[in-house]
Design a protein around this nucleic acid. Structure first.
Length: 599
RNA sequence: GGAGCGGUAGCUCAAUUGGUUAGAGCGCCGGCCUGUCACGCCGGAGGUUGCGGGUUCAAGUCCCGUCCGUUCCGCCA
């Protein structure tokens, strides 16, 4: 067997006989002398085959092809100097030596590869259907290792903090709130189904009632919803819960945990504590509950300035209790018509009627190019110039609507403009962590005509808002909930929970869940709360997203070994797949074909 | 469910206004080469332009439908 890995031999090994095994990364056949770069997971080592050392090994080395698995034995030698030129390869850690092969065993031949490992591949289908080959690429191998290091760092950190990992069931119970569940039919209980957990939320709260006090789990979660670049139907959370705690403690814990994870995966020290900002401030200044703060372009409030404006779109919005907000895209007056159209489209997609803007061609407002400035008074123009710090070359963009809507639209526009202006190019090294606190407790769902939990139904209101919850005054209630944000990505969210049966019942009532439904769906939780449930709270961190950001990737698929494609399929194993009639019979489920037959 | 972008050789891509036999690089196959390291040089094979229909003297290119991929919206407590 091998005596060394492919990233182990150095000049100090010169003269020794070594055996290495791995994949043929490349072959450079000079007719007489042949070079092979042998690869294992640790690195590359050059093997040189010369007829004078072993005619046999040199002969069969000609037949080597990409990705053959071979075993090479030979003497470790320094790279020679040829015609005064050194053959040392500075790019390789093993570049000062080579193995002069005396024996070559072809362990296993490879078919011609469907793609070249050293080249980037845009065909996602091909990558996923041959994932076992895709993962051989150095970048993917590195990502797998990064994931391991980051996960291990989280486990080690939480262990040191007195948290114990407890596994909770995968075969679980469907819950009425939240995402669609994956259902698993029960053979022993025909017609009944398990659900795969969307999160171990209720189990971890029950573990608090059980007296575990400090729990964590690297937990697989499942949601049957449409996918995105940062969303998979199954994903992993670092799930944390503690008793007798408060938001400050949880936030400090998470700061320590994330520091350990980034240190382990990227060898960077992140400054703590993180900044904090209420949800209201985040929305007001950045138009997002996960602010990207690596560039400025903050939202300004112009409601007072335009309250009496002759431009009815603005004054009307204010009269209706709304706001006029604007951003100043410095130096972007040269925006193209196509880009304006694109921004307008973004605004309309998110519920705006249109997008008002001013291209600032000069100091004097008469030089400004805009479809709306003609409606403004001189005072309004002067006030606008002052409020927005308008200078030649700027582009000012407006939104007028109810506060949350206007902020949200402008927040999206802000990100789109930043993308157009390349404001984030070269900013990958900046890690801007932020806590967003005091999320709303409830939001009105127009479609369903009821109030819904913004976080989840177990989230505790801010204590001073509790009376309003109990009296049915749901507008603007704040939750003891917090999200941790990095560069505009939500890394995790948590809250202090409800631990009293009566408050939980009040919450279910607010969500329009009847007492009978609550008793049926959440009996275990309500019962548990009656036996000395400790005050508790926690958080869930999205491990896939964290690893993605640690690794500098742009999709979580790059840091998941075997991800699903956009349609939720595993192209390698071709799942989901139809079950056999026998399987379905055991489960007493009719196949689609049978149903059609029966009409 | 909706919108954008894409689908041309094994891979990455090109193909002018609709106009000759759809090209290039890499890979693959064969030959040459004793110091390369993405070796080099010579030669070769490889295509139902995702699929179906339409317009046209002529379609990779235009139109309609459909399938697939991807990004986003809805959705994701």
């Amino acid at each position: 067997m091998r005596t060394h890995t492919c990233n182990e031999l150095r000049p100090e090994h010169n003269g020794q006989t070594a055996t290495i095994i791995g994949w043929v990364n490349s072959r450079r056949d000079h007719g007489g002398v042949i070079f092979i770069d042998l690869r294992d997971r640790e690195g590359l080592t050059q093997c040189v085959f010369r007829p004078e050392e072993s005619a046999h090994a040199a002969e069969i080395s000609h037949s080597l092809r990409h990705e053959d698995v071979v075993l090479v034995t030979g003497k470790v030698e320094p790279r020679p100097e040829i015609d005064g030129k050194s053959a040392v390869n500075d790019e390789l850690p093993t570049g000062e030596i080579e193995i002069a092969a005396t024996e070559l065993v072809i362990v296993n031949k490879s078919e011609v590869m469907p793609f070249q490992l050293e080249k980037e591949l845009s065909n996602e289908d091909l990558r996923l259907s041959h994932r076992f080959l895709d993962l051989r690429r150095p970048r993917m191998a590195r990502n797998l290792r990064t994931r391991h290091l980051v996960t291990k760092a989280a486990r080690d950190f939480l262990d040191r903090e007195g948290y114990i990992e407890v596994e909770t069931p995968i075969l679980s119970k469907s819950t009425p709130e939240g995402a669609r569940d994956f259902l698993v039919p029960s053979r022993m209980h025909p017609g009944a189904f398990y659900a795969l957990p969307q999160a171990p939320q209720q189990y971890k709260q029950l573990l608090m009632v059980a007296g575990v006090e400090r729990y964590f789990q690297v937990a697989r979660c499942f949601r049957d919803e449409d996918l995105r670049a940062d969303r998979q139907p199954e994903f992993t959370q670092v799930d944390i819960e503690a008793s007798f705690t408060n938001p400050d403690e949880i936030m400090a814990l998470v700061e320590g945990c994330l520091s350990a994870m980034f240190k382990a995966g990227r060898n960077v020290k992140i400054p703590t504590p993180f900044d904090r900002m209420t949800w209201r401030e985040a929305m007001d200044r950045f138009g997002s509950d996960k602010p990207e703060r690596r560039f400025e372009m903050e939202l300004a409030d112009l409601s007072a300035l335009f309250a009496q404006s002759g431009f009815k779109v603005f004054s009307g919005a204010v009269k209706n209790g709304g706001v006029v907000k604007a951003i100043n895209a410095k130096g972007f007056a040269g925006i193209t018509t196509g880009q304006v159209d694109k921004l307008t489209e973004v605004a309309v997609t998110h519920g705006a009627k249109g997008l008002a803007y001013i291209q600032v061609r000069g100091e004097d407002p008469s030089t400004w190019r805009s479809p709306i400035t003609k409606f403004f008074s001189d005072e309004e123009l002067a006030g606008l110039k002052e409020a927005m710090n308008i200078e030649e070359g700027d582009l000012v963009l407006f939104a007028a609507d109810q506060w949350e809507g206007a902020c949200g639209i402008l927040g999206r526009i802000r990100l789109e403009v930043a993308s157009m202006q390349n404001l984030l190019v070269g900013q990958d090294g900046i890690l801007d962590f932020l806590w967003v606190t005091e999320f709303p407790l409830l939001a009105y769902d127009e479609e369903e005509g009821r109030w819904a939990a913004v976080h989840h139904p177990f989230t505790r209101p801010v204590e001073e808002d509790r009376a309003r919850l109990e009296s049915g005054d749901y507008e603007g209630l704040r939750a003891q909930a917090y999200d941790v944000v990095l560069n505009g990505h939500e890394l995790g969210g948590g809250s202090i929970r409800i631990h009293e049966a009566d408050l939980q019942a009040t919450m279910f009532k607010a969500l329009g869940i009847s007492e009978e439904d609550a008793a049926r769906e959440f009996a275990h939780l309500l019962a548990a709360f009656q036996f000395g449930a400790p005050p508790h709270g926690g958080i869930a961190l999205g491990l896939d997203r964290i690893v993605m950001l640690v690794a500098g990737e742009h999709s979580i698929r790059e840091v998941i070994a075997f991800p699903k494609n956009n349609k939720g399929m595993d192209l390698m194993t071709s799942s989901p797949a139809e079950a056999t009639p026998l399987q379905l019979r055991d489960l007493r489920i009719k196949s689609t074909a049978q149903e059609k037959k029966q009409g």
